[in-house]
Design a protein around this nucleic acid. Sequence first.
RNA 1: GGCCCCGUCGUCUAGCGGUUAGGACACUGGCCUCUCACGUCGGUAACACGGGUUCAAGUCCCGUCGGGGUCGCCA
Length: 443
Amino acid sequence: MQRLADTDRERSTTESEQIIFDSLRWLGIDWDEGPGVGGPYGPYTQMERLPLYREHAERLVREGRAYRCWCTREELQGQREALKAKDPKAEFRYPGTCRDRRDEPAGPSVVRFRTPTAGALTYRDMVFGEVTTPNSAQQDFVLLRSDGIPLYNFGAVVDDVTMDISIVARGRDHMVNTPPQIMIYEALGARVPGFAHLPMMLNQKGAKLSKRDGAVGVFEYRDLGYAPDAVLNYLVRFGWSHGDQEVFSKAELVQAFNWEACGRGDGKFDAKKFLAIDHEHLKSARLVPDDEYARRTVPFLHARGRTSATEEAVKRALYMIRERATTFADAALRLDFVFRDAPEVDPEAARKFLGAEGAARLAGLVLALDGLDGSAWTEPALEACMSAFLAEKGLEIKDVAQAARVALTGKTASPGLFQVMWVLGRDATLARLRAGVELGQRA
RNA sequence: GGCCCCGUCGUCUAGCGGUUAGGACACUGGCCUCUCACGUCGGUAACACGGGUUCAAGUCCCGUCGGGGUCGCCA
């Protein structure tokens, strides 16, 4: 179920909502009921559920569990500042001005919860265990704003109750909301759901992650070329463990996840570890099948200007970069040379490997390779042909490999030579090698 | 400051009274090798500190220190 907390009219926009929905979908997290989809517990956006909150708030007022408060925001703010001026360390609490008020003045009012003044509240957190908070730590918090829009704690609880929610799982920063929420469940006479709080992911400095900490949104990793399952894997495995296993498919995650194995200590985000997990996924055809790999890589190739790249062609070339590429964007970078008419030769690489001597050897190689016809253009045949050529010339593969690599790919680092030749095909291979020979002769 | 939570290598973590404290990432030495990777063998590196309890404590209890969360008519 997807439920939207859109009661903050400032922050909740169509764009922000869209980002939430799209991020979740991209991660492969879907829902059966929700905004736009409908379902038996709708409506699913809080702004469409306003009558429900009002109804529950009125009931609590009627039963004496809550009361109306006519104190204005300005009055409260004034009191807050006055206290702060007197004692900077003091904590401002609503003084209970309207708690026992009998009259009902005109003008806007909020609904406040009547919190117990003594005692303590204990609940059993599914990951932290027993947590006890003195009721004195609570104040008469607001349930419903003067405009009838509920505050988070109230809206969430009314929704949980009316939507039969069984487990509330969220970040540890919500732990302080739990006691007031439980008070509301109980005042409403509702079953209290299970609560599971999860440790937080902090930045490298150990503070709450924010936009200033670089890439923190799901979409940023999508754009960086991460695999959705790898993102999910890193996120879920963060603060949860399953023995020594750390690479999981989405299905395995769903199967293995449990609250008991969740850790309690906060952790720091580690970009390198995250990348390594993505690399593990991209290396595995089980985790990222060829079709998906090609489908996700093509857009990155197009973005690089390699518009001739097709899924079919990428799928065929993929095997030679499987172990090397850490992201789909990286895969596009490594496959780039395949989809160019001619490789973009790195001048430094050419200077080093494509001199007169390199050209001469390449020329010999071209001659040898030219003897292979199209139907014999296979990796083993290519390798055998190379061996014969080397034997005849009394050379070692070291002596020609780099020159050939630069001529074929433009770079000094690439997939295996014979893989490159096979992927490029006979015509492109010979053409590039000949171009390399010319380049070397001119040098 | 009040209230709540946390504390094993740099990082993510295993450990649930008796372990040479394990794995992964990162770093690093070797091997493999046509380059880069992959793979593989090895290395550096941790129980915050102090008291208890116990024959025995990373594991249980208390305290100290350190870190984090939260104190709104935000979520």
